[in-house]
Amino acid sequence: MIVNLIVIALILFIGFHYSRKRNKDSDYNRKRYIKTICFILILQSGLRNVAVGTDTYTYFLSFEDTKNMSWDKVWQIVIDYYKYNQGKDPGYTVFEKLVSLFTGEYQLFLFAIAILFFTALGRFIYKNTDGLRDAMVAFVIYSVLFYSFFSITGHRQTIATAGTLFAFEFLKKRKLFYFLLIILIASTIHKTSLVFIPLYFITYLKKPNYYFWIVIVLFPVLLLISNAVALYIFSLTNSYEEYQHMDELRPVTFVCLMLLISVTALIRYKKIIKLNPTATFYYFALMIGIVFLSLVFAIHGYMRIVQYFSIFIMLLIPLILRSFNSAGRKIEFLVYSCAIMILLFFFLKSNIDMEYRFFWEEMRLEEVYL
C-alpha cells in the first residue's frame, strides 16, 4: 500500500509542478506529464515481485512453460482452439512465445506488458482530456480503482484492454475496419474484449442521456433477473469457470460508486457535453458497463467485462468536476478537494491489506500456491 500511496503523491506533486510552469504551450506540459506518470506506472508494474497480485505467479509458470515450448506446439494450441474448441485465448501463448524470443526473463515480460498497456492508457488520456488537471484526476482514479487489476494482476485482460483503448480512437473516427481488426486481435488474448464491439454501433444513437436514464431506472429490475441472465450467458460461454459466483467477492462498494458517478454525470449532462461533445462516447460506454454491472452479484466474473467500460470514468469524472467551474473558484476548489479525498478514502479502504514488494525483495506467495 505504501508504494501506491507514494505513486499517488507523485501523480499530484508532478502535476502541480507542471501546472506551475509558465510554458505557453500547455498541451506540451500535459503531454510531458502523461509520459512521466506512465513511466512511473510502468516501473511500479514491471518491478513487482512475482508474489504481488493474485495471478502473477500463475502467469510466471505459464511463461516458463511457453518459452521452452516449440513453435510447432504453439501453433497446435492455436489450431486446437479454433478447430476443436479446446483451450482458451491462444493469442496469449503466441504473445508469450514472441516475447521469449527476445528475453527469457519473466521480469522483462512484465515490463513488456506494462509498456504496452500504459502506452495505450497514456494515449487514451492524452487524446480525451483537455487540461493537465483532468489528466491528474484521471491518473489518481486509475491508481485508486484500477491499479490492483491492470498493474499487478491480470496479464491477458490487461493486454486485451490495451487493445480496446487503442481501438477507441478508431471508433471515434468511424474507421470500422481498423476498429474491428484491433478488437479481433485482442480477443485472441482474452475473448471478453469482443463485448467492446457493440459500442461502435450503439454510439450512432442520439441523446445517450435518455437511454442511460432508462438503464439507471431499470437497474433494480436488472438485479432481480440477474441470476437467470448471468447463468444463461455463462452457459453459452463457460470457458471461465474460475470466475463463477463467490460471496466474498461481491463488489458492493464499486457498484454503489459506479451508480453514483453515473447519476451525477447524467445530472450534469448538458454542461459536460458543452465542455466536450465527444463525451457522448463516454456516456454510451459507461451505460453498457452499468448493464453488465447488474450481473456481478450473480457471477463476479462479469467484473471482467465491466472493466472495459468502467475505465471511462477516468474521463467522465474530470468532466463532472470541471462542469462546476462556473460556480466560482472556491466551489471549484472545494469540489476537486472533496473528489481527491473521497478517492483516497476508497483507496485506503480497499488496499489496507495489500502488500507490494519489489522483485529483489523477499515475499511470501499467497496461500493458494502453498
Results as ranks from 00 to 15, higher is better:
I2L: 12
V3Q: 03
L5D: 09
I8K: 05
A9W: 04
L10N: 05
F13W: 07
S19I: 10
R20T: 04
D27V: 14
N29S: 14
K31S: 06
F39N: 06
F39W: 13
I42G: 00
G53T: 03
T58V: 14
S62A: 13
S62D: 14
F63M: 08
T66E: 03
N68A: 08
W71H: 05
V74D: 09
I79S: 11
Y81R: 11
G87K: 11
G91V: 02
L98C: 14
G104M: 10
Q107R: 03
Q107S: 13
F109T: 06
F124T: 09
Y126K: 06
K127L: 09
A135L: 00
M136N: 01
V137F: 10
V140G: 07
I141F: 11
V144P: 00
V144T: 10
L145M: 08
L145F: 09
Y147C: 14
I152C: 04
T153A: 13
T153V: 07
G154F: 07
H155L: 06
Q157L: 02
T158S: 07
A160R: 07
A160S: 14
T161Y: 06
G163W: 04
G163R: 02
L165E: 07
L165I: 07
A167D: 01
K173A: 11
R174N: 15
R174T: 05
L180D: 13
I182E: 00
I182W: 01
I182S: 01
I183N: 11
I183A: 04
I183W: 05
L184C: 13
L184D: 05
I185M: 04
H190I: 15
T192A: 11
I197H: 14
I197Q: 08
Y200F: 15
T203G: 02
T203V: 05
P208Y: 03
Y210M: 05
Y210D: 02
I214F: 09
I214S: 02
I214T: 12
V215A: 14
V217S: 08
V221W: 02
N227I: 01
N227T: 03
Y232M: 11
I233L: 09
I233W: 03
F234W: 13
F234K: 02
L236N: 05
H245S: 06
T253V: 10
C256M: 14
L259A: 15
L260I: 11
I261A: 00
R268D: 00
K274A: 15
N276C: 04
P277N: 06
A285L: 04
L286K: 10
I288W: 02
G289D: 01
L295K: 04
L295D: 05
F297N: 10
G301D: 03
M303G: 14
Y308C: 11
I317Y: 00
P318R: 00
I320V: 05
S323W: 00
S323R: 00
R329E: 04
R329N: 11
L334K: 12
Y336D: 12
Y336M: 09
Y336F: 15
A339W: 00
I340C: 10
I342F: 12
L344N: 09
F345W: 10
F347E: 01
F347A: 10
I352M: 10
M354V: 06
Y356E: 01
Y356Q: 03
R357Y: 05
R357A: 12
E362I: 10
